[in-house]
Nucleic acid binder design. Structure first.
Lengths: 180, 180
DNA sequence: ATGTATGTACAGTATATACTTTACGGCTAA
DNA sequence: TTAGCCGTAAAGTATATACTGTACATACAT
């Protein structure tokens, strides 16, 4: 009997491991590396907050990797540090608001890109228009019109993208599609 | 005068180059590498469909890189192959539906991840429930309940994510936020 | 104050990725 | 059929990234 319960524990670990491996594999989409994904999964299913040494042992990796990995996960608001009196080591536990994680990852990544691109497009547009003032060669003028068309299209797209991002940023998305 | 027009052409190239560099830099979000982003930009602003040799010269990179790069861009529906009678070399031009590109990239990347994770979560849930049948140790039973809670939360999240993806997949998003 | 334990910076190493060179199969035109 | 060109597969090389070991700075306990 004792033996059987032990067996269940092993199988449970295996089942957890399998699940963690899958979500870790896909966590690249959140800008989280594969190994950091496994780190998150490990902390998620831990029964208690973990120390860096715990993680190091659980994953068979250096403590340094755990340190840098945890910092990345904290930056992404996926884990949080907790204090327990009498414990000197830093303790970490998962911060499980996946809806929030999704939106903030989505927003952070796209917001910056959209802003950069929009700025670059505006600048390009200005320059193209300035060139158009000076241009005399009909062919060159034609080319410039085409370029302006493209950059205007881009600007429209960025405006649209901005709206999409805003829906996630403001949380409107949760009114449109309520969390389960 | 001739000299000045030439100067404009140079400045135009520089302005294009600048814009292309920026969008290429951020194109990593679309799963497109930096250099493939520049490749796309080059094709986008080309006045005529380009051959691999054209691109090779324009970017100062090997033809092989252009070949693989173009294939990646074609897979992402960002460039298309065109035929011109009398031209033996393959010709490529940009396929400029950025709205479509965005949604299909978004959908393709997240759809697969969501499906994988959902499948893994269902499987984990089944296993956890099976273990719960066999378990006798109260502590183990408690652990299993916690695990089930987590996996149920995950399943809810995947359901939500599925809905979000569906909005982009079906094009509903364009009714909610019309393209400019 | 001083010894000890803990997290992290730094440098070195291994692995993965991007790119190039070379070589070849397939298509086209004579 | 064959000569020549085009696109790509394969192998090799360089660069970037991920990970480790060591060594140090900081904070706590005595």
């Amino acid at each position: 009997m004792e033996r059987e319960q032990k067996n269940i524990q092993d199988k449970l670990d295996e089942a957890r491991h399998q699940f963690i491996a899958t979500i870790a594999q896909n966590m690249g989409l959140y800008g989280v590396s594969d190994t950091n994904g496994r780190l998150y999964g490990t902390v998620l299913f831990a029964e208690r907050p973990m120390t860096l040494d715990d993680m190091s042992e659980a994953l068979g990796m250096s403590k340094m990797s755990m340190s840098t990995g945890i910092r990345a996960l904290m930056d992404a608001d996926m884990v949080e540090r907790v204090w327990e009196k009498g414990v000197r080591k830093d303790l970490y536990q998962s911060h499980d608001d996946w809806y929030q994680s999704f939106t903030s990852v989505f927003v952070n990544r796209w917001r910056e890109a959209a802003d950069n691109n929009q700025k670059a497009a505006r600048r390009a547009k200005e320059e193209f228009e300035a060139f158009l003032e000076e241009a005399e060669d009909p062919y060159l003028i034609d080319v410039l019109h085409h370029d302006l068309e493209k950059v205007n299209y881009a600007l429209g797209y960025y405006e649209w993208l901005d709206e999409v991002i805003r829906i996630f940023e403001s949380g409107e998305i949760f009114a449109m599609i309520p969390p389960k």
